[in-house]
Amino acid sequence: MNAFRFLGDMTHLFSVLVLLLKIYATKSCSGVSRKTQELYMVVFVARYMDLFTDYISLYNSVMKVVFITSSAAIVWCMRRHPQVRRTYDRDQDTFRHVVLVAASFVLALIFNERFTFREICWAFSIYLEAVAILPQLVLLQRSRNVDNLTGQYVLFLGAYRAFYILNWIYRYFTEGHTSRWIPWIAGLVQTALYADFFYYYFLSWKNNVKLELPA
């Protein structure tokens, strides 16, 4: 464990807590893409399958449980909670996220560390996580006004993978040049997708105006 990875995990955890706070405090999920939340739930289930088979550390196991249960709780709220589900922008959240699932799966069949069920699921979860934010970014561009908590949620979510890239650079130089090209490339794509959001978020912060993404 190094500082970059710990910072990345905490930023990731924080993004989930911010979203849970927004939904719980405002009893509203307006501006939040349910499709992105469903994709994240698939990402965590596919990646943390080894939760019960491989014990790495208490921290690792606890965080896996937290990410799986929180993403499931958010999806449940957006689908079943009587008050919250009414505020879901169904007709704005139109990204065909099934395409992302299919493309990630095909990619995982071709590019993986080992052609085993677990490794294909792991690679699938890495590729899917890289593009899972797309429905949310499209929704932000459509729903002009981005409330602060949703904006902060996306900001922390983008920052977490950027910390992981620093973590991979650190591990590359300290632990021997192990090839981690799958998360490397997917992580770079993932962070790049946030680039324009970071840019407009920074402008809105600098000019102290509401965050608005150009359509």
Partner: peptide, 10 residues
């Protein structure tokens, strides 16, 4: 190398 790749990151 062990048969399964160990993924120690989240």
């Amino acid at each position: 190398r062990s048969d399964s790749v160990e993924h120690d990151e989240l």
